[in-house]
């Protein structure tokens, strides 16, 4: 079972991203549960969403405390909260940032890192810093846990108006292709 935690800020579509990812994984025949962490989801406030996926039925309906990977769709959310809390040794971090690997403080036992300048891509496509679909592309590229094709299908069944869908498909694709992946050390824990 793979456990992923998504961090963002209210209004950026972290929960929607988790639903799109869930649709993509179901498309691939996986069992998935996606639960938003609940609090006061006001615009700007840090929010999180949890996703579990597996080849077998998932029975527990719980939050995630020790994720295999963390996806932060907002560059500044790392200043607000500790996004690495509970991250498994050998885990993966996919992050939206203009910074380089060297400029970031990484957990010691991080195994895989994916970096994407999602805001720049978003500004070009949406003229607004909407990064959720871009970072789903980045997640697919970094982990290989889901294919870009399935993500696109997941996106197509989400509730976008026509123009929004085309823009988001492009955004997702660019997120996928413009993500730098770093394998920092061999996997300590094999994630499914």
């Amino acid at each position: 079972m793979h456990e992923l935690r998504i961090h963002g800020r209210g209004g950026q579509g972290a929960v929607l991203a988790s639903k799109i990812l869930a649709k993509a994984l179901v498309e691939e025949g996986k069992f998935v549960t996606a639960i938003p962490a609940f609090g006061f989801e006001r615009r700007g406030a840090p929010v999180a969403a949890f996703i579990r996926f597996d080849d077998q039925e998932i029975r527990r309906v719980n939050n995630i405390y020790a994720p295999n990977s963390v996806l932060s769709i907002d560059s500044s959310v790392i200043r607000a909260i500790n996004v690495f809390e509970g991250l498994q040794p050998g885990g993966t971090w996919v992050h939206s940032t203009k910074e380089t690997k060297e400029q970031l403080t990484l957990p010691e036992d991080l195994s895989t890192l994916g970096l994407c300048d999602a805001v720049s891509i978003a500004m070009e496509i949406f003229r607004r810093p909407i990064t959720n679909t871009i970072m789903l592309g980045a997640f697919a590229k970094t982990t290989g846990a889901v294919s870009l094709e399935s993500l696109k299908k997941g996106l197509e069944t989400a509730n976008f108006r026509d123009a929004g869908l085309q823009q988001n498909l492009l955004a997702m694709e660019r997120g996928y292709h413009e993500t730098q992946v770093f394998h920092i050390q061999p996997h300590l824990v094999e994630a499914i």
Binding site: K19, V32, T33, A34, I35, F38, I58, V61, N62
Partner: peptide, 12 residues
């Protein structure tokens, strides 16, 4: 149905 866990928990 349990608020939060079932109400917002998405699955196939």
């Amino acid at each position: 149905s349990d608020g939060n866990y079932l109400s917002y928990g998405a699955t196939g």
